[in-house]
């Protein structure tokens, strides 16, 4: 089921531009019209078809999620790995920087950054990456700290492998499994954060659509057209729920401890 939802999300987002959709076409006769056999999801306050805008919003959230998770994952992994491998002063400074970033609760720093950088999808990506790299850095640092004294790493160093080769060839690949689990949950976080920023008016700007900005528009017409809030919210919840379920399964499959616990070991 989670894969079905995520597959649908990805297909709609990627194939959206190829479909005969008109997310910006205004039909004054259908303003706030509810769901009907002709338009399953109804129309919004400007008479634009909600299904078409939902697909446009899916594209926004998928693009932002993919960009943020990839960029912050790579950045965080490299910083975390080098921090643990180099040790000493480097490590202490990087740990302090990580602590400072972790001192900003939840989405707060992203809100402030996105607010100051100005609205727009690019700035949303920058703001979420600025916040997102920290979790990956901390995870990979902890993993590399436990790996750096393994015999095969010492062997690689003894054979004359350079710092970069040790980190990229011998250390980072072994941190991939937990990184993948973290990234999966990261997707859920980024999808919610992007929608949240757009809800606050700091994300994509009209006439582009985001599920968050659709919910914000919908709250103003909640009494007469509740479908404007329900449709994008349900889509958002379905995707986040699916990603979280997938993350849980991945964690169960990859986490050695819980795997042995399951088999009674």
């Amino acid at each position: 089921m989670p894969l079905l939802v995520l597959g649908l999300w990805a297909v709609l987002a990627l194939l959206g531009p190829l479909l005969p959709l008109h997310p910006a076409r205004i039909d004054l006769a259908r303003i706030l019209a509810g769901p009907s056999p002709h338009a399953w999801f109804g129309y919004d306050n400007l008479g634009r078809p909600l299904f078409d805008r939902l697909v446009m919003g899916a594209r926004t959230s998928l693009l932002v999620a993919a960009a943020v998770v990839t960029l912050s994952g790579v950045l965080g992994a490299v910083i975390g790995a080098f921090s643990a491998w180099l040790g000493g002063l480097w490590d202490r400074v990087i740990v302090r920087i990580i602590d400072v970033f972790l001192a900003f609760p939840g989405i707060l720093l992203a809100i402030a950054l996105a607010g100051i950088l100005g609205p727009g999808i690019g700035n949303v990506v920058v703001a979420l990456c600025a916040v997102g790299w920290v979790g990956y850095a901390r995870l990979v640092r902890a993993q590399v700290l436990s790996l750096r004294h393994r015999d095969y790493v010492s062997a690689a160093v003894a054979l004359g492998a350079g710092q970069r080769r040790v980190v990229f060839r011998h250390l980072l690949p072994l941190t991939l499994a937990p990184l993948l689990v973290e990234a999966t949950f990261g997707i859920a976080g980024v999808v919610i954060a992007e929608a949240g920023l757009s809800f606050l008016g700091l994300g994509v700007q009209p006439p582009a659509a985001s599920w968050g900005s659709m919910i914000r528009d919908g709250t103003r017409y909640m009494l007469v057209a509740p479908h404007m809030v329900l449709v994008p919210g349900l889509a958002l919840m379905a995707v986040v729920l699916a990603v979280n379920l997938l993350g849980d399964r991945l964690r169960d499959r990859m986490d050695v401890r819980s795997a042995t616990a399951r088999t009674g070991g």
């Binding site: 929608a195 949240g196 919910i215 914000r216 909640m222 809030v229 958002l236 919840m237 729920l241």
Partner: peptide, 10 residues
Amino acid sequence: SIPNFWMGPL
């Protein structure tokens, strides 16, 4: 999985 900016309006 339910964001608070959706749960609140609901």
